[in-house]
Write a protein that binds this DNA or RNA. Structure first.
Lengths: 182, 182, 182, 182
DNA sequence: CATGAATGAGCTTTCATTCAT
DNA sequence: GATGAATGAAAGCTCATTCAT
């Protein structure tokens, strides 16, 4: 990538982050372009739509999530690792709706996002396999399902007053639900 | 309500339904007004925003859901009733995203919707109470939680290819998750 | 027209005039909207394109031209009237390129412009008829031709350094050319 | 000029001609570059703007016009030569708006164009001188004026439905107008 | 209360031009 | 000199919402 393009890309991401920090989730590409001192065309070239921008904004945190998942997969106690990973992911998704939407979307704008998602699902698949060995996870659930269900829980938590006790309860419901039926 | 007002309201709802049936979920108030041969202002008077319109469109089906919930609450087998009710609700929400959004929203536009929701939650509360007596539902879950979690599951199902087997699995995960932890 | 619409229309025209006075012939609808404190949509609603705006800006001066043409048609000396009218029109067209483009265009955006043009051509037709009676105008030339040829002369004058003596010469060439061939 | 530069220049001109032949008068430098398999920068190096490209595209036909003018200047019947030359030029300008714009412009992009124009004006000046001797052209008209007035006539013909009879009439008006006033 | 023209913010595309490589 | 990705100004459309009539 050309140096000036990289510079502009960085400025755009920086401004977008400032907007989010200021409590504006709308990520209006026009406004961002103006604030970044850049033409709209430049923003659209780098990020063809809002979702692509969200993906770029989430890339770093997604990388961290993948690391976390890999650590969890290597945990001695698979069940504890699973619980910790889901709690970690849920907290992050609740904190950052952009991140949640990237995690949930079935249509990635950037190949890098799909790659990260694949890496995540791979680590989670290992984790699930080991947990299954302990009788802690049912047979008909894959990494993909866990990701989707977790986003569902995040959704359920968002729809209503933010109540920290609900977070723990819903997370527990999910973990119990993942166990093989009695 | 004046006779012409009632007529207009009916026409608007009818056109909105036609639009949805034609596969257009956008419910653009301008377009609906035009197709209904009515001013935009008239549409806005009856339905201050898209969500209010969705509520009106869902009222009938919501009423049916409440009936179903009351029947389930009266079922001899509370657990079977719960499962049947959740499956019924999920099917409806998956079939009709407007209905799903009304079911999920914490901010009702119309008092009637809130009333229906209260009636629903009341019936579900009874059902849960009885199920709890059978050891089939954990203590820290209310009717409200069930509604939100079900919407979460609906969300999880939507995010990805429509796969009927997933519907049953996710529903099962939810029901298992609702049971008291082992 | 609604009072607010009329107000906005007026403001837009006023700003457009200011822009022209400031030497900016580009008539950018976005810029005008901004300066007029009005949305772009409003400008586009009133004036679907730049040409429509030019027509509106020229309406008054076009009306004056029609009056002048009617006066010329009533002149005792038809030939003098014709010469005076052509000189008047040419001066105006050279002074105001927007006016010239409205005068020349075959595709009017507003019906009012077409009406004015018809009125102009009617007056000129009378004038030509009388001049023909004096042997001062050839048979195969209509009012429409005179208007187009005058715009051609304006064009010829514009293409090159502005030289007042050329104006008189070219005008004379046109008037001599309109006479019946010897 | 380097061999590859010459090759590129040729390819660009060829593609531009194909575009014009296909009815696209916009001569978009980006599109032409793409179709020519060449960078935009290369097109801009050869032709700093659209007008420069038009001049290059017209060079050959302009050369032919100059030849025609020199032939006319050598014609025994100066008046017939003048008429023939004007008719020839007008036909060419009407057929090719790019050619017309090059003929008309007061600001040539390429020195070669200015040279051709000078050569043209010289031949026309001779022709006019001889015609003046026959009393067929007024004193206050130069070759430059004839070129501009002819472009004016072309303009007048373009503004309106294409009507071959008008071409002859307007041309006649011009020739009559060029004669000394009675 | 009904009406719908009017409003204007926002979005996205286009394209002439620049400039880093 | 060649290259073409990158730039950003401008254009003009869409549509939710308002408000004069």
């Amino acid at each position: 990538m050309r140096a000036d393009a990289a510079r502009n890309r960085t400025r755009v991401l920086q401004v977008a982050r400032e907007q989010l920090a200021a409590g504006d989730d709308s990520l209006q590409l026009n406004a961002i372009a103006r604030l970044a001192g850049v033409g709209v065309g430049t923003v659209y070239r780098h990020f063809p739509n809002r979702h692509a921008l969200r993906e770029a904004l989430s890339a770093e945190r997604f990388r961290e999530l993948v690391d976390e998942a890999q650590a969890a997969a290597a945990d001695v106690d698979a069940l504890a690792g699973l619980r910790r990973l889901l709690r970690f992911t849920l907290a992050r998704a609740l904190d950052d709706s952009g991140f949640a939407s990237v995690l949930e979307s079935a249509n990635d704008a950037e190949a890098q996002t799909s790659a990260l998602k694949a890496e995540l699902d791979l680590a989670v698949a290992h984790l699930l396999d080991r947990a299954r060995g302990l009788g802690a996870v049912r047979r008909d659930i894959e990494a993909d399902d866990v990701r989707r269900l977790l986003c569902g829980v995040e959704h359920a938590l968002r729809s209503g007053a933010c109540d920290p006790t609900r977070t723990e309860v819903y997370l527990d419901v999910l973990l119990e639900g993942l166990r093989p039926p009695r």
